[in-house]
Amino acid sequence: MTRISILYASTEGNTQSFVDKLKTIAESNGDQLEARMIGDETEYANETTPYVAIVPTYLTGGTGTGPDVVENFTNALGEYIEFGRNSHYLKGVIGSGNRNFNVQFNLTALRYADKFKVPMLFAYELRGSQFDAVKAYNIMKPLFGG
């Protein structure tokens, strides 16, 4: 049995829906997926085991990807990863967004991957499909020894 750990942000329920799909897939494969949502009310803790971050894209300002584009709603997850040595255990980022926003699709996850020097593992649209969840699971599992 492989134990997969995820930290995620979800404001509209789309990321939560995707995490629920991942949990079902992990269980059907005899694995355990532990997921914790990180929000403004989350108390900082020191992570001691590897994890993957799943982050949606919510932006304001600007017309593309420049410095005038500001992250909304996901800052608590980024700050949590920055706390102590938590970024040391981050193995990669999975992101979501709406493809209607063109170059801003998945921008938050791309920024996290760059900032924390980890791979951008996978991107999906909105709630993600079952197929997306299977792909993401198969990408994540080897990171946890499976």
Rank of each mutant, 00 (worst) to 15 (best):
E12C: 11
Q16V: 10
Q16S: 15
F18Q: 09
V19F: 06
V19N: 06
V19Q: 04
D20M: 09
D20E: 14
L22Q: 02
L22F: 01
T24C: 06
A26G: 03
A26V: 00
E27K: 09
S28Y: 15
S28H: 15
N29Q: 13
G30D: 03
D31C: 11
Q32R: 10
Q32S: 13
Q32V: 13
L33H: 01
E34K: 11
E34Q: 12
E34N: 12
E34V: 14
E34A: 10
A35I: 05
R36C: 12
R36A: 14
G39E: 10
E41D: 14
E43Q: 08
E47R: 02
Y51V: 03
Y51S: 11
V52H: 00
V52G: 03
I54N: 03
V55S: 02
V55T: 13
P56M: 01
Y58M: 09
Y58G: 06
L59W: 01
T60D: 08
G62T: 01
T63V: 09
T63R: 05
G64D: 10
T65P: 07
G66M: 09
G66Y: 10
P67W: 00
D68A: 08
D68L: 05
V69M: 09
V70F: 03
E71L: 05
N72F: 05
F73L: 10
T74V: 15
T74D: 14
T74Y: 11
N75Y: 12
N75V: 12
L77A: 03
I81H: 00
R85M: 12
R85S: 15
H88C: 06
I94E: 00
G97H: 00
G97D: 06
N98W: 09
N98I: 04
N98P: 00
N100K: 04
F101E: 06
N102M: 14
N102G: 13
V103M: 15
Q104D: 05
F105Y: 05
N106M: 02
T108A: 11
A113L: 08
K115E: 07
F116P: 10
K117R: 14
V118M: 07
P119H: 02
M120E: 11
L121P: 09
F122Q: 03
Y124H: 12
Y124M: 09
E125F: 02
L126W: 07
R127L: 10
S129I: 00
S129Y: 12
S129H: 08
F131P: 00
A133W: 00
V134T: 11
K135I: 14
M140E: 05
K141N: 03
P142D: 02
P142N: 04
G145M: 07
